[in-house]
């Protein structure tokens, strides 16, 4: 059994970011970070579940939500999850221009999502549905707002990645950064699917 040779052989087939030991460890670390983020959203979802009916004098979920913007936001974010996948696919094929182009598309879709969501929130507040009104609204704003803040942070983060990619091309460090960003972005997409189902769909049915 010659373990080292087998390891070397394996490394030849690995993508750049996994072949480098230090960067590969950072990817493990990022997964652990995502665990903590799952727990953050888990706590927020459970709070929302508890507070869902505590509407006090404020509007209920049924009265508040409208599907139009929510569908738009869902389409934008799900599409952006697909385009970040295309970006990683191009990165694996060493196609720098396509990687950058798909990353830019992802960011624009993400920005569209954030703009639509902010527009929604401003509308709610203008209609008097502030988070002071009820525990339901507090829980709604903190859950959906934390997700929106994550998307916003992701856009800023990816902008710095864009600059690094243009300057440095594909190195173990830049590919690792882009890969972890894609993990983050897919994660936010999954969280949104839960928000769409448990907050908006559920709110409209009951």
């Amino acid at each position: 059994m010659s373990v080292p040779v087998a390891k070397e052989e394996m490394e030849q087939h690995l993508p750049l970011e996994f072949a480098d030991e230090k960067e590969s460890i950072k990817i493990t670390g990022f997964w652990m970070f995502l665990v903590t983020d799952v727990m953050i959203f888990g706590s927020l979802f459970s709070s929302y579940a508890v507070y869902r009916t505590s509407v006090a004098q404020g509007p209920s979920a049924y009265q508040l939500f409208s599907f139009g913007p929510v569908i738009l936001e869902t389409v934008l974010l799900l599409t952006s999850s697909f385009t970040i996948g295309l970006s990683i696919y191009s990165m694996r094929r060493q196609n720098k221009q396509a990687t950058i182009a798909w990353l830019i598309v992802t960011l624009l879709l993400g920005a569209g999502f954030v703009i639509s969501e902010v527009h929604d929130f401003v509308g709610y507040v203008a209609a008097g549905a502030t988070w002071h009104q009820s525990a339901f609204l507090s829980a709604f704003f903190i859950l959906v707002g934390t997700h929106g803040a994550h998307v916003t942070f992701g856009i800023l983060w990816a902008t710095t990645l864009l600059i690094q990619l243009i300057r440095r091309g594909f190195t173990p460090v830049t590919t690792r950064k882009l890969f972890t960003f894609s993990l983050y972005w897919h994660f936010l997409d999954i969280v949104w699917i839960f928000i769409f189902t448990f907050v908006y769909l559920n709110g409209k049915i009951v």
């Binding site: 709070s47 508890v50 507070y51 505590s54 509407v55 006090a56 004098q57 404020g58 502030t130 988070w131 002071h132 009104q133 009820s134 525990a135 339901f136 609204l137 507090s138 829980a139 704003f141 903190i142």
Partner: peptide, 20 residues
Amino acid sequence: MSLFDRLFGSSFFTLTHGGM
């Protein structure tokens, strides 16, 4: 949530507005 209740007027743990 506690900090937001204090600084930004949310209603998570208040006695009014459905807080728990």
